[in-house]
Computed example of a mutant assay.
Amino acid sequence: MITKNARDVPPKHRREATRPPPGQRVLVARAMVRAALSIVALLFLYYLLPFGRSLGGGVHAGLGIALAAALLAFAGIVGIQIRRIARSAYPGLRAAEAFAVSLPLFLLIFAGTYFVLGREQACAFTQAMTRTDALYFALTVFTTVGFGDIAPVTQTARIITMIQMLGNLVVVGLVAQIFLGAITAGIRRRASREPE
């Protein structure tokens, strides 16, 4: 039996051997398009949701309840995604798609919270918050860049920012680890079904 070393194979054929088959390329493209459309839809909703209703005197309680409910909904969505990843025929693709949607959703939850807080309490941040400013601030907190142009001033704003900082660690660390575990479970499940 004659075997070829990788260096014996011409470079053109090596590239072709490492490319995914055409069917998989279509699956990857579809997953990327679905993720991109989901992100666009989330941004569209963020800019169109009517955050106009005033919370009145109960800014702290109302905002806290809304944030807690949104984070619980986020946890539920992540749980559903984990199940889908584990059951998927292509768990790696499903996990990448889920993470590409989960992360922007997490950031938009906090951006919406910052926007409402900035609207209800003008002194909560160092400047007035538009929706774009709130999204920008949520993203700078997530990436730990912290330019300093927008900063939380009131105790409520600082507490919400600290909750996001802790949530960032959970999203990046724990959720990524859970998604990787679901990928592994999905691969094992698929391998056990395939005949040898």
Rank of each mutant, 00 (worst) to 15 (best):
G23F: 13
Q24F: 15
Q24D: 10
R25W: 14
R25E: 15
V26G: 03
A29I: 07
R30T: 08
A31I: 03
R34E: 14
A36Q: 12
S38F: 02
A41M: 07
A41D: 08
A41I: 06
L42T: 13
L43A: 05
L45P: 05
Y46R: 05
Y46V: 11
P50K: 09
I65Y: 14
A66P: 03
A68C: 11
L71Q: 11
L71F: 05
L72D: 03
F74W: 14
A75N: 06
A75G: 11
I77S: 08
G79A: 08
R84T: 06
R87L: 15
Y90N: 08
G92Q: 09
G92C: 09
A95G: 07
A100I: 12
P104V: 00
P104F: 00
I109A: 00
F110T: 03
G112L: 07
G112N: 02
Y114W: 03
F115H: 11
R119P: 00
R119C: 00
R119Y: 00
Q121G: 02
A122S: 08
T130M: 06
V141D: 08
G146T: 03
G148M: 06
G148I: 02
D149F: 15
I150Y: 12
Q155F: 12
R158Y: 03
R158L: 11
I159G: 01
I160L: 14
M162A: 10
M162N: 04
M165V: 15
G167E: 06
G167T: 04
N168C: 06
